[in-house]
Amino acid sequence: MDATFENVENSEAAYDQVEKIKSNDYNHLLAGFWIRLWAYLIDLLVVSSVNRILIYPLFELMGLNNNKSFIFSPVSIATALIFFAYFVLMTKYLNQTLGKMIFGIKVISIKEENISWGTILFREFIGRYISKTIWIGYLIVAFTPKKQALHDIFADTQVIHEKLYILKHNQVKSAE
């Protein structure tokens, strides 16, 4: 039985050693365009499913105007609120949405230890609105050195892989 506890202690020490090495010599790998696109598509599927399961039937039961073509109809406003609430709350409390969880990526702040409410709200409302109206806002992820979309640049955030790392030395070489 002592050998079992010894192995556990050794594995914990090894884990601590690996984490120390990672923090000193490695940076998280940045998430690129394609993985972010797939995560976003899954998020859209989640949000649209919630809207179709909850919002549309609820508005139908209440007999409210269910005219989805009018931008300021009650159902359009409710679905927009669900969309933004999903992205804001998931990013604030978990640093990732369900789509990002599936692909092992998350949002981090470049300037802050934890992402503040101001940063999240700016990123998700203002920045995402700009990126949606100017589709290049999303496409520039493929071309910027830090793999940031327009809303990431405005909010000083990045999307990284949680468990993939790159040597700091290699990043310096590739930047030159």
Rank of each mutant, 00 (worst) to 15 (best):
D25N: 12
I134L: 15
V159W: 01
G99M: 06
Y40V: 07
P57H: 04
V8D: 06
K106M: 04
N95E: 00
H151G: 03
S116V: 09
K163L: 09
A155T: 13
M90F: 14
K173T: 12
K68D: 06
L94E: 06
S174E: 06
A149Y: 01
Y56I: 06
K163P: 00
I110Q: 03
L54V: 15
N24W: 02
D156Q: 14
L37C: 06
T79I: 02
K92W: 07
R123L: 02
Q171R: 12
L164R: 11
K132F: 01
M101S: 11
Y129V: 15
S174M: 04
W34M: 08
K168R: 14
Y56V: 11
G127Y: 13
R36V: 08
I136S: 08
F33T: 05
F33G: 04
T91R: 02
M62L: 15
I108L: 05
K22N: 10
K20L: 11
E19Q: 15
I110V: 14
W117I: 11
L89C: 12
A31Y: 00
Q17R: 13
L81I: 15
I21Q: 09
Q96F: 00
I77M: 06
W38V: 10
F103Q: 07
P57W: 10
K111C: 03
T79Q: 07
F72R: 07
K163C: 01
I77D: 03
P145F: 13
N10Y: 02
G137D: 05
L54E: 06
N51H: 07
I21R: 07
L44C: 12
V18Q: 03
Y93M: 04
I21W: 04
E176I: 13
K111E: 13
F33L: 12
Y138I: 05
A39P: 03
V18I: 12
V107Y: 00
R128T: 10
